[in-house]
Design a protein around this nucleic acid. Structure first.
Lengths: 207, 207
DNA sequence: ACCTGAACACCGTTCAAGT
DNA sequence: ACCTGAACACCGTTCAAGT
């Protein structure tokens, strides 16, 4: 409550993460400095090094939280619909895209190349794999019950991932602009795109 | 030819770009500094400012060259196959993915969020649109001649873009690792993924 | 155990001055 | 016209010292 006075109460690590997340929308990831994060959190710049090995470790923790949230959104989407693998795959894909729209800066940190090697941060590598497995497991299920009949497993999984990942990245990076990011237009578009992978461009059914 | 002696011969701007591109694979975009680029090019750090307004302007020029090369590769792929829209769309998509595999750092700069707003660099916005139009034009052609029957134009275009963009980004970021990036495995996988969007996951034809 | 402040080597950017 | 060198305000990181 008193910002610039001595010790920080309790959990400085999370306070730094929250401060960094609040700064990202203001000036972008490019301008994010550890010194300013510490300054805004009301501690000296060197205090951060008690909690994070370096700047990349802070970004890795933010990325980790991003993957955890992404996984949670995909699981919620899976539970919220009938146990039909194709519906589930569709909903999981939509959740992925929705995550990117809601948390563009998380997505940039998770995939933007700031963090060179995932495996330098074991916790991050773990949650990234869990998120991937959520999607991969649903594709496998779809193939097992015969709903997905084209392509081998690896190809079908990668295509599903690439499609929603690409759309999420384009939305997060502002390359695809929508009238109003909060309205139904974006959802309708995402639904159409995700649906297209299931039915194929060639198809027979209009829309 | 004599690195640390007075004026740089002729085209310093391009020498700086080439130097930056040579440095990127070594330590990544995160560690790229204008001062070191100038140092390696054999000029003082302030000399770069005669040719680029700031660091972002250098990155924007690199991104611009990336889009030009991407467009060239897509055009070559289009010309190199029968004038069937579906084949062309497939080849253009494969060219997009191949670009990402060959020039991962270009792709990171083009889409990684280092450059906040494309429209701050008119030349960049132009070539980015030209690359997009190459793909969009082929989708439109496919719909006009009835080869693409599912989805409206916007959805079909965005799905095509998102799929290859996502795959290219995942490959460039090292999230999808292949046995040997130079061998046929990657090409076969890319072909399978791109093919899946045309036929759909549900489909009927095995492989 | 947790934080501070000085210190070091670096960076982006500007600007008067040189040829 | 093109480049240099000093200068300024900033950064990431380390470390002895404080409570």
């Amino acid at each position: 409550m008193r910002p610039h006075r001595g010790y920080h109460h309790g959990d400085l690590a999370n306070a730094l993460i929250r401060t960094a997340l609040a700064m990202l929308p203001e000036r972008g990831i490019q301008a994010l400095s550890l010194r300013e994060v510490a300054r805004r959190a009301g501690v000296s710049h060197s205090a951060a090094y008690r909690h994070f090995a370096d700047k990349e470790a802070l970004l890795a923790r933010i990325a980790t939280q991003g993957f955890e949230r992404l996984t949670a959104m995909m699981r919620a989407a899976k539970s919220a619909c009938a146990p039909d693998p194709l519906r589930r795959l569709r909903n999981i894909g939509l959740a992925y895209v929705e995550f990117g729209r809601q948390h563009p800066h998380h997505l940039q940190i998770m995939f933007g190349g700031q963090i060179g090697d995932l495996h330098a941060h074991p916790e991050l590598a773990l949650v990234a794999r869990e998120a991937f497995d959520e999607l991969a497991g649903t594709v496998r299920e779809g193939r097992r019950c015969g709903a997905i009949r084209n392509g081998d497993e690896r190809t079908a999984t990668l295509a599903s991932w690439a499609l929603v990942h690409g759309l999420a990245m384009l939305l997060a990076g502002g390359r695809v602009r929508l009238q109003d990011p909060r309205d139904a237009d974006s959802l309708a578009l995402s639904e159409g795109v995700v649906q297209l992978l299931q039915t194929g461009l060639i198809g027979k059914n209009g829309d």
